[in-house]
């Protein structure tokens, strides 16, 4: 059976549900504390996940303190080795502050997840957004390879989620895009709130050039089941949710399940 390791930093808070959905996707998953470096190293996990939360309470800047933790040496090495690495929300912030994403020059900080930019408000925002994958992502990301072309609704919950890059890198970054914010039917996002944080090029998730590392701001683990989808949400997923039978409500996957299904598929193919 394929294995995954969820890394808990001081202040992480999505480790349990993340591990739960990975297990439900058929991947043997364990949670490791930030200081269980040896155990983690011995585990030789097939994939690593940095869960959401507030590592070190986002002090100084979200993700930056966790990025300096020793356990990230190991994650860095595994990323370079090509193992699938996923950072969700705060985990994404850690990956960006570690220089793993966009990762043109692994280790160098070449992007930022800046504070949300939205009209008339600042700070945290919880909402549901629509996301769409890119061709590159479906082709090379172990986390997105099972996605289709249609838009999926996924919740966000963050205060610092705006992808930013140097002016000169804007062309280059396009091939690193994993997911973009979009309209209900996959049309390009028309500013706020479809793009909930002012992220450049509407980027919601970003890969390294090889595609094995993915930093995603929305929370796919929170919409693993159909029953987790809001009943009032617009679009086809809303229809599906409102008209679901009791059986479907429980058994049908939610829109986020496909991320973990992608990994299971990828590991299944690669581990034989």
């Amino acid at each position: 059976m394929s294995t995954a390791a969820v890394i808990r930093f001081p202040g992480s808070n999505c480790e349990f549900e993340t591990a739960r959905v990975l297990r439900k996707s058929g991947i043997d998953t364990r949670i490791y504390n930030w200081n269980e470096i040896e155990k983690l190293s011995d585990s030789r996990a097939d994939a690593y996940i940095l869960p959401g939360g507030f590592s070190f309470q986002d002090r100084i800047r979200a993700g930056v303190v966790a990025a300096g933790e020793s356990i990230m040496d190991l994650i860095f090495q595994e990323a370079v080795n090509g193992k699938p690495i996923l950072g969700i929300c705060n985990g994404a912030q850690v990956l960006v502050e570690s220089g793993l994403v966009p990762g043109w020059k692994p280790g160098a900080i070449q992007g930022a997840l800046a504070s949300n930019l939205s009209p008339g408000r600042s700070g945290y925002l919880s909402d549901w957004v629509y996301l769409k994958s890119t061709d590159e992502a479906r082709e090379k990301s172990p986390w997105l390879c099972a996605l289709g072309q249609e838009a999926i609704p996924v919740p966000i919950a963050h205060a610092e989620g705006r992808f930013v890059f140097r002016e000169d890198d804007l062309d280059k970054v396009k091939s690193n895009i994993g997911l973009v914010y979009c309209g209900v039917n996959g049309e390009a996002a028309e500013g706020w709130p479809e793009n909930p944080n002012g992220s450049i090029l509407d980027i919601a998730a970003l890969m390294n050039p090889e595609g094995n590392v993915l930093a995603i701001m929305p929370h796919p683990e929170r919409c693993f089941h159909l029953w987790q989808v809001p009943p009032g949400i617009k679009g086809p997923w809303g229809e599906l949710r409102r008209n679901a039978s009791l059986k479907d409500l429980e058994e049908k996957p939610g829109p986020g399940a496909v991320v973990f299904k992608s990994l299971a598929k990828y590991l299944g193919e690669n581990n034989g």
Binding site: C14, F16, G52, G123, L125, R222, F224, Q228, P231
Partner: peptide, 17 residues
């Protein structure tokens, strides 16, 4: 909209729904 109502992944109906 400032509250995280979905952490833990156990939320079935959120505020307002």
């Amino acid at each position: 909209s400032y509250y995280d109502s979905e952490v833990q992944g156990v939320t079935r109906l959120r505020p307002g729904e």
